[in-house]
């Protein structure tokens, strides 16, 4: 039973919560605002909050001066590609573990999770050298391979927790109804798991989009996704706040929006179903 709360208390809570929410969000808001200022206004003292001359010229300049579109496409290809390939490999694996669990299933799952704990820097050199030798350095293919592998354990885990919630009975009913394994997965399991598969996909695209160890170390001009592109602003160029802001806004906007839609699934996904 929800209890009646005094209006005063509710007002206080609302004011505090909104203030804190605003403070936490402020750096993002500030970046977005700055991206619409001129460079002079961006460093004006006192800083102007809303009353400045709004301009979109920074976006134009960023697009023009750098190959923004290339980096954007790199990000899209790398994050979506690694997620789709990961799903393709993970769906059968998750089916196996969720519906035909054996003595070792839990150990296998744990082992998969443990590969996620391997510090990337521990394997950076061999991967770097191998990629260099086979010509995968600074290619989209190379990054798709690496990101597929590093996110595979998370994809499997997430799918596993979603599949676990599908009653085995229903799959057995399909078997009794004459479905072979392929039909069972295509007609029964996959449609039933669509919400789970969708949120797994969303979360992995977010993780891959924001991945900033391998993308920084394995790319140069050609395959650099937005993470690496933005990093190039750490040079003095970054002191052009308005352009830095415009580039940043463009880099985070798509994923921010996706993230807002998937915040509920994020909890389940990233906690391996341990918190609901």
């Amino acid at each position: 039973m929800a209890r009646a709360v005094s209006t005063n208390r509710k007002i206080t809570v609302t004011v505090i919560a909104w203030s804190i929410g605003f403070l936490i969000f402020f750096p993002i808001l500030w970046t977005i605002l700055t991206s619409f200022k001129t460079e002079a206004e961006a460093i004006a003292s006192p800083p102007s909050f809303l009353f400045f001359e709004w301009t979109t010229e920074n976006y134009g300049i960023v697009m023009e001066r750098s190959n923004y579109f290339l980096h954007f496409m790199n990000s899209v290809v790398i994050s979506v590609g690694s997620t789709l390939i990961g799903l393709l490999i993970a769906v059968p694996a998750a089916w196996s573990m969720a519906f035909v669990p054996g003595k070792n299933t839990k150990n296998v799952l744990m082992w998969m999770l443990s590969t996620k704990m391997l510090p990337p820097v521990g394997v950076l050199i061999p991967i770097y050298l191998i990629f260099k030798n086979v010509g995968l350095l600074d290619t989209r293919t190379g990054l798709v391979i690496v990101l597929t592998l590093i996110n595979l354990p998370i994809i499997i885990w997430m799918l596993y927790t979603y599949f676990k919630e599908i009653p085995v009975d229903i799959l057995e009913a399909a078997r009794m109804d004459g479905a072979n394994l392929r039909n069972e997965i295509i007609y029964i399991l996959t449609p039933m798991a669509v919400p789970g598969i969708a949120s797994t996909m969303l979360l992995n695209i977010i993780l891959a989009w924001n991945e900033a160890f391998w993308t920084l170390n394995l790319t140069a001009a050609n395959a650099a996704p937005l993470t690496a592109f933005i990093a190039s602003y750490s040079s003095p160029e970054g002191l052009f706040y308005a352009k830095l802001s415009a580039a940043s806004t463009m880099a985070i906007a798509p994923i921010l929006i996706m993230g807002w839609f998937s915040q509920k699934q994020l909890v389940r996904g990233l906690t391996f179903g341990a918190v609901k």
Binding site: F25, W209, L216
Partner: peptide, 10 residues
């Protein structure tokens, strides 16, 4: 929740 979705370099 927003900051979680901002890439580290940004």
């Amino acid at each position: 929740i927003a900051p979680f979705f901002v890439m580290p370099t940004v």
